[in-house]
Design a binder for these strands. Structure first.
Lengths: 260, 260
DNA sequence: AAGTGGTCTAGACCACCTG
DNA sequence: AGGTGGTCTAGACCACTTA
């Protein structure tokens, strides 16, 4: 006698084949599980670096098979929200305690050996969002934002000049002092101190000429070609939470990208 | 009575746990299947755009379950070697007949609406590989290579000036005429006419100043900042088969990149 | 030894496409 | 109706980690 086949579709999967509005909207079970896990991550049920419950535990909690939980976790791991470690468990991804110091920084020295860079804070102030910044951060022009500028140095020489904009509402109490005293990557501090986790980002890259304000910062003559990297970073739910414009001196470094 | 459990490990999986040399070298079944499929792709058993055998067909051919074939194909699809189409089959990926005209070109106009660009061939000649080109293409300095230069134009204005180097051994018979007459993306021609398929690429991006030879090509004054995009493209087995250096005018375009 | 993720199987059913 | 990929299950066993 063969194993009992399921008699009914799984309750959570019982969605109409084609809703009235024409949108496809058929959601496999594992996608729903993925959504539930994402919401718990967003709510901070499990902190960055912590283990989430085991696959079997989650399977019994959600009343699905291990394989279904597994597929959900697979996708979250592919999106770098979770990290699997065989024999140990599945962990919430974190920007801190990471082998790569800057997960989003694609700059490499010409010899290809990544070395870690020193940081030097230039200034940090609260002010009202200029219109383009407000547009990018999806807040109102004039809302409180934090602007901060800093340098990254390789071998004592400035290589990157960053100007960073953060929504004031999410980063209350962020001051130059707290920035200065924190060790490790800035995104690590953001998630540990402010609960803001950068999930993904898009960059717009151009070549520009160094102007009178950026040239001295990088110790270059005005007019030198610089890589302009404008980055918009997102947290859960595709909410933009950081706008950053970096000017890179690419005389001894390059921006590395992989295509496939 | 429960279903008969497997009595022996699957023959193909019967690899020693720890070989003498210390390298881990445990290969799950689906990885071995993936390797077999990759070799058949490389050998050209199935041409770009064609369907490969169905999962059940492959499963019975390899004497494994459908799930194992499925996982192998999943990975190949994630690497863009195969394309799955529900209800139709699994197909060999191709650079031709693709919705995106240039799969590897990340350049976008400022308004974000991708338009297709015109091509203009500048020149195309065979010559002996200079040392740096030979090093990148993993051939001997002095070997025959094809050098070709061309422009991409948006709205009639030049935006990209490319210099492309190809190993002569793989592209016998490539001439300016054949390039000019071919419609569609160049990589599409490479795979259709020469059986060379670009699988992945790495790019090194810098900001440079337009020099006396590039500035006129792009209709810009000498010294204008340009994005320099050096791309090395690989085919199966990580063999480098194209070196390309593009100079992008980023006044009205930007290079778009996603991080996650 | 126990717990975790990783692999593999066999089988059922669903969604999609084509004759 | 029949074929293809896509989802889901239940269960076994393997590899890795920790105690």
């Amino acid at each position: 006698m063969p194993a009992m086949p399921p008699v009914l579709p799984h309750p959570a999967a019982a969605a109409p084949t084609e809703p009235a509005d024409g949108t496809p909207a058929f959601s496999p079970l594992y996608q729903q599980i993925k959504g539930l896990l994402t919401r718990e991550l967003q709510a901070g049920v499990w902190k960055p670096g912590e283990a989430i419950p085991s696959e079997l535990e989650l399977a019994s909690r959600f009343k699905v098979s291990q394989g279904t939980v597994r597929k959900a976790i697979d996708e979250l791991a592919a999106e770098n929200l979770l990290v699997r470690r065989q024999g140990k468990g599945t962990f919430v991804a974190t920007h801190a305690e990471q082998q790569v110091q800057y997960r989003f920084l694609r700059l490499m020295p010409d010899d290809g050996v990544p070395r870690d860079m020193a940081r030097r804070l230039v200034d940090c102030q609260r002010l009202r969002a200029p219109a383009p910044v407000a547009r990018a951060l999806d807040c109102r022009s004039g809302d409180a934002v934090i602007q901060m500028r800093r340098l990254l140095l390789a071998g004592g020489r400035p290589v990157v000049f960053d100007e960073i904009w953060l929504p004031g509402s999410l980063f209350k109490g962020l001051t130059a002092e707290r920035l200065a005293e924190y060790k490790g990557p800035m995104y690590g501090m953001f998630e540990a101190e402010f609960g803001v986790r950068m999930i993904r980002a898009v960059e717009k890259i151009r070549a520009v000429a160094a102007d009178a304000s950026s040239a001295p910062m990088l110790g270059l003559p005005v007019g030198s070609p610089l890589l302009s990297v404008e980055r918009l970073s997102f947290t859960y739910g595709d909410r933009p939470v950081e706008l950053r414009r970096g000017l890179y001196n690419t005389e001894q470094h390059f921006y590395r990208n992989e295509l496939n």
